[in-house]
């Protein structure tokens, strides 16, 4: 695999909760680099710091120390360098959730176009882009359906379409196949890999799903807040 742009560069990132006797070190001087086109799995037991690292890369949680560079922009270096982190997420990061987290009052198409609406796209252009993505993910025929009436696989593909809508180059996924059977889980991972290559994006996934380990370029392990690579 050809190495693409460096999209995620985590250097010496630490995160601790509490102080003194109650201090818990969730992450200890973690370094991680992910390039465009890479699909990386993050493994580790519960409490190892996976969620903390994912939240830090997703600019949701403040690191206690270290430096974070996303898509060539230094966003954290001892402090956040960007005032509007939500805009940063909107521009650079796509999220895929374990429970898809689609907004129940919007149709599949609206769930995708809402991201574009927030990004300032014109409604017609947002609708076209949403429809294209849904067609690409083979759920275009369900565009007008609300999440409650979608199957687990369909809902997860709509969630992937939403994550990709604004063409982010960093996609963070939290157990994206946990709610799917093994066949659908393989299909979703193949799809994510295809998207990573085609859109020159990187994908960092937290997973415990052993049946899809072979779909990743790299498996990284977190234990007691420290990182190791297989």
């Amino acid at each position: 695999m050809a190495i693409g742009d460096l999209l995620v560069d985590v250097s010496g990132v630490a995160k601790h909760y509490g102080e003194g006797e109650t201090r818990v070190d969730a992450l200890r001087a973690v370094d991680l680099q992910i390039h465009a086109g890479e699909v990386v799995a993050m493994l580790g037991p519960s409490g190892s710091g996976k969620t903390s690292l994912l939240n830090i890369i997703g600019c949701i949680v403040d690191p206690s120390a270290g430096r974070l560079v996303l898509d060539g922009e230094t966003v954290f270096d001892g402090r956040w360098l960007r005032g509007n982190l939500r805009q940063l997420r909107l521009d650079k990061i796509g999220f895929i959730f374990q429970a898809h987290n689609l907004l129940p009052f919007l149709t599949a198409e609206e769930n995708v176009s809402v991201v574009l609406d927030l990004a300032g796209w014109k409604p017609a252009a947002a609708q076209t882009r949403a429809r294209e993505l849904l067609d690409y993910l083979e759920v275009g025929h369900r565009a007008g359906v609300k999440p409650a009436h979608l199957s687990g696989g369909e809902a997860q593909r709509v969630a992937i379409a939403r994550a990709l809508a604004n063409r982010p180059r960093i996609i963070l996924a939290d157990e994206p196949t946990a709610a799917l059977d093994s066949v659908r889980a393989q299909l979703v991972m193949d799809l994510l890999r295809k998207l990573a290559v085609e859109q020159e994006a990187c994908i960092l996934t937290v997973t415990h799903d052993e049946k899809i380990f072979d779909r990743f370029d790299r498996l990284i392990h977190l234990r007691d807040g420290r990182l190791s690579t297989e």
Binding site: G58, I60, N84, R86, Q87, R89, L90, D91, F95, F97, N101, L103, P104, F105, V114, V115, L118, A119, R162
Partner: peptide, 16 residues
């Protein structure tokens, strides 16, 4: 609240 958290996560500003 969960939907609002999702909106925040995907980048919705406070005014939305």
């Amino acid at each position: 609240l969960k939907q609002i958290a999702t909106l925040k996560l995907i980048g919705a500003p406070d005014r939305t």
